[in-house]
Design a protein around this nucleic acid. Structure first.
Lengths: 214, 214
DNA sequence: GCTATTAAAGATCATCTGTTCAATAGAATT
DNA sequence: AATTCTATTGAACAGATGATCTTTAATAGC
């Protein structure tokens, strides 16, 4: 029943030798694999399985992270950090560029960042788990991106129904849902995601009577 | 450390006596609580905790379900069945009613059904777990609801850009995202969800130049 | 009221899982 | 080559967890 009971963990697929790495490097390696691993199987993935994938003993993981929660925290940080808060706030409010162009630029870049299986799934797992980072991220997004977007829309709107925050969330949700379908529900990717994003933006702008050149 | 080691499980909150129920009834009771329980903590929730909430021993659960997976399967069925496939397909294609009204009727009813914490979360948990029911549901939705909706839109569209399936998904996603924000990310519910749904629909229709009366 | 039936409890198993720690071995320094 | 340092391993523990099996007792049929 057990062919090799002498080997406890460490089923190194690529085998090779057990390399001795500088701590910083090993730590990074663990976190990177953990991101992939947890994104695939969820945050309840077992440390033994993670160790197996790393080709390392399970106890080594606890040499770098006191508890599993610490590891998950490191995964959150790795995934969340740098995903937002670039120069978008200014660029989104740069009125020398037509709003349509600004929106397309933003969502092209943003979707390139988040329409990625690892991000999408860990975001959803952590959201379901009620992680505070998740809340903070969404609040941050709302304040730093969506609220300014609302202001920009208001400034150009030509209809009697004034734009509301919910309209911006609707635009955002419609676009994000493309990634959810693809990476959470594993449906096929749209043929031309960029084009769908542009159409979503045009629907939004048209509703408020905003011209493409403005 | 343990005040009452003689009682193994069965921390009946409402206490009372160990009632002897007809099997069908007990089974139903277990499934219903399991829906609530798994929706809250995820599909990896422990059977002992579920039993505790039921005020019943853990072993009793396995008297009704051979394995935990069987229980989860029953939860899926309970949650998924009856959530779709009513008379919507016909009503959505009833051209004696303006499309806008049909859309509003549909999404009012549909959102009332799915904007519910249990459904939303179990749908997401099962989607992340790759449950086949999830795929079947979405395919069914696409075929039975969204594709007819596309046909209806095409029939009334007055613009040169023809409506595409992706447009319908965008409409759908934007609306569903309201529920995701509320129940997955636990953000506050919009003040007037119905109104937001109507606005999303109007954006969609306007983009294809479809009049409200048609 | 008595008995056969069967929910439900109680006890326990085998395995899994996070965590700890002493022993080992790879590399750098002397 | 010997020594030192420490990354990594190997082994084990305690508690949890899905599942099984025997025992208890509530209910239905007579």
């Amino acid at each position: 029943m057990d062919g090799q009971s002498a080997k406890p963990d460490r089923e190194g697929e690529d085998s090779a030798l057990r390399k001795r790495l500088p701590p910083a490097e090993r730590r990074q390696q663990i976190v990177e694999e953990a991101v992939r691993f947890f994104a695939e199987v969820g945050l309840e993935g077992k440390t033994r399985e993670l160790a197996r994938r790393l080709g390392v003993t399970q106890s080594l993981i606890f040499n770098y992270f006191a508890t599993k929660d610490d590891l998950i925290e490191a995964v959150y940080e790795k995934v969340y950090i740098g995903r937002l808060s670039l120069d978008w706030p200014e660029r989104l409010t740069d009125r020398s560029v037509p709003l349509r162009q600004r929106l397309i630029d933003f969502y092209t870049e943003y979707s390139a960042l988040i329409f990625e299986r690892e991000w999408m799934r860990i975001f959803m797992f952590s959201g379901l788990a009620g992680a505070s980072l998740n809340h903070r991220y969404l609040e941050h997004l709302g304040e730093v991106i969506l609220r300014p977007l609302l202001a920009e829309t208001k400034a150009l709107a030509r209809t009697d129904t004034p734009p509301k925050m919910e309209d911006v969330w609707n635009l955002h949700g419609g676009i994000v849902y493309i990634g959810i379908r693809q990476h959470i529900y594993r449906m096929p990717e749209p043929a031309k995601p960029k084009e769908e994003i542009a159409r979503a933006i045009d629907k939004y702008l048209l509703y408020f009577g905003i011209n493409s050149e403005r």
